[in-house]
Simulated assay, not measured.
Amino acid sequence: MAWDPGASAASKGKFYTILRFLRIEQTFFSLPMAYLGAFVAYRGVPPIPILILIFSALFFLRIAGMTNDNLADREIDSKNPRTKSRPLVTGKISVKEAKLMITIGLLGFFISAYLVNFWAFVLSPLVAIIVMTYPYMKRFTALANYQLASIQGLAVFSGAIASAGIIFHSLDKVIADIPWFFVIATIFWALGFDLYNHIPDSAFDRQMGLHSFAVVMGDFALKFAGLNQVVSVALDLVADFSYNLGPISYASTIVHGLIMAIAFYKASKGNFGSAFYYNIYSSIVLGLGIDLDVLLGIPRF
C-alpha cells in the first residue's frame, strides 16, 4: 500500500494514535520558518517568552488545522485505499473527540496570539481562516495547493509579526518589517513538497472530482513541483541579499536547495514518502542557518 503519514496501526494505543492523527512531527516544517521570520524581523534573538509563544501558537493551530482537515475528508479518506486506516475512518478517534480537539486547538492558538502582542492577536483570525478553509478548497480549485503552501508562508509571516509587534506600534511598520521574500519563497517551497502528497492520489482525486495540480498537470506535476522549489531557492537567495544576511545564511540556503534536489530525485523514483519528509530536513537547515547568521551578526559578503 502507498505511504500515508496519517495512518495508525490498530495495535497502537490512544496517545500514539493521536500523534499520528495530528502528524505532530510535521510541526518541524513550519516551526523553523516561524523562527526564521522572528529572527530576521527582530534582527537578533527575540525574547524567550515570545519564542515559546510562537511554538505554542503553531502547536495549537496544528491541532485545530490537522483535525479539521481529517474531519472534512473523513468520507473521502474512507474510500481511498491509501488513507482508509486513518483514525477518524477506523473509529479510533471519534467525531466528538475531533470536534473537541478543534475547539482546544483554536482556543490555544488565539490565547497564544493574545499573549504575543496586540497585532498578533488582531491578525490571528486571518491566519485561522486560511488554515481552516483549506480542506474545502480542493473541492473547487487546484489553487488549494497554493492555499496549503501559503499556510507555511504564514509561519514566516506570523513569526515576524510576533517580533515586529514588540518593536513597532503601528500596523504599517509591523507589515513593512516582515521579510516578504522569505514568506513568498516558503510558499513556493511548500507547494513543491505538497505535491508529493497529491501525485500518488491523482487518479483517485480525479475519480472523486477533487482538484489539485497533480490532477490538472498529470505527468508534468512532478516537474511543476521541482520548478516551484527552484523558484523558492532563488527567492531565498534574493532574501539573503535584501536583508543583509551573512555567509551562514547563503550556505544554509544552498544546502536547503540541495536537500530539496535529493527529495525531488527520490520522488522521481516513486519514493514520495521519503521525498516528503526530506523537506523537514531542508526546513530545519534553512531556519537554523539563518537564525544562527542573525545571532552571530557576521557581516554580509
Rank of each mutant, 00 (worst) to 15 (best):
M33L: 14
K92A: 15
V238L: 11
G44I: 07
A275M: 03
K266G: 09
L22I: 12
V174S: 05
S212A: 01
G37R: 05
K14A: 07
K79D: 10
G13N: 15
H198W: 00
F21N: 13
Q147Y: 01
L31Y: 02
M66I: 13
Y265D: 14
F110C: 08
V294G: 06
V122Q: 04
N80F: 08
S85F: 11
L171H: 09
K269C: 07
L143N: 02
S274N: 11
Y114V: 00
D172R: 14
R62C: 08
D205P: 07
S124E: 04
T27H: 04
S232I: 06
S274Q: 14
F264P: 01
V216T: 15
D219E: 15
I280N: 11
I130L: 13
A34D: 04
N117L: 07
S252M: 06
I280A: 12
P5D: 01
F224C: 05
I298L: 15
Y42G: 06
Y277V: 14
D240N: 01
F168G: 05
I166P: 02
H169M: 04
G153A: 12
F213Q: 02
S252V: 07
F272G: 12
F220H: 13
A160W: 02
I262D: 14
L191D: 03
F301D: 06
M66Q: 12
Y250E: 06
L245Y: 03
Y250V: 15
S150V: 07
R300Q: 11
L106D: 06
Q229K: 04
K12T: 13
T17K: 02
P81W: 08
F276C: 02
F220Y: 14
V45L: 14
S282Y: 02
P49H: 10
S56Y: 01
N244Y: 08
I166V: 10
S249G: 10
Y146T: 03
D236C: 10
A267F: 08
N197D: 14
M33F: 13
G37I: 05
G273C: 03
S283V: 01
K96E: 14
I290P: 03
L31G: 00
V131L: 12
L115N: 12
M208K: 13
T253Y: 03
D69M: 10
H198R: 10
A261D: 02
A164P: 11
Y16N: 15
F21L: 11
F241H: 14
D177W: 00
D291S: 15
V40M: 01
A164C: 11
M137K: 05
G105D: 08
N80V: 11
A64E: 00
V285H: 09
I298G: 06
N279W: 01
A72Y: 06
F110D: 09
T133W: 04
Y278L: 15
